[in-house]
Amino acid sequence: MAKKLDSYEEMIKGLWRENPVFVQVLGMCPMLAVTNSAVNAVVMGVATFFVLVSSSFLVSSFRGVIPKQVRISIYVVIIATFVTVADYTLLALVPAIHKELGAFIPLIVANCMILGRQEAYASKNSVKFAVLDAIGTAGGFMFALLALGGVREILGEGKIFGVPLFGDNFEPWVIMILPPGGFITLGLILLFFNWVTARRAARNQLQPQPVGSDIR
């Protein structure tokens, strides 16, 4: 690593500039499948957060001793272990939500965002930065889940976290709860994200570009 890492920057980049969902377009499967309500989104986000941060911590701690020939297998073993822990914990604590999330909790193990962070970052950086990076990335993922889940619950049921917003006569947008609503909402949010990025890029071209603010 030639350039010096700034801990704040390493953490914050996952939230917006390198947001795993809106910029890297990773982790689409849970993104579309479990965001039909804000609560589901939060639980999924917390589970992913736990798995990613713990895995990054372990992988980074043992980065010197994991032989590179079998590193992916060992990452998967580590991730799968934490996913199992998360799975059982949710089943014990919040059985109703666990039932709704269903197969998508075990499927966290296949979330390419997590394996990607291990391979691309945690295995090459010190524990401190690996954990900060994981917190940022998982936070960005949670933010994305919540954005999608919030929009879908507000339009689909007229509620947010189960609290009614519009009174009894609200006409639910059924499609928002169904899978197509996930695709449409995600598409529109990506559209918005790209629009913001493009606008910012256009503005930065006019002004002198500050050092280090490389706009993707």
Binding site: E171, W173, V174, I175, M176, L178, P180
Partner: peptide, 10 residues
């Protein structure tokens, strides 16, 4: 199609 999926009753 959007309307039918969104507001099936109406």
């Amino acid at each position: 199609a959007f309307l039918l999926a969104t507001f099936p009753i109406a």
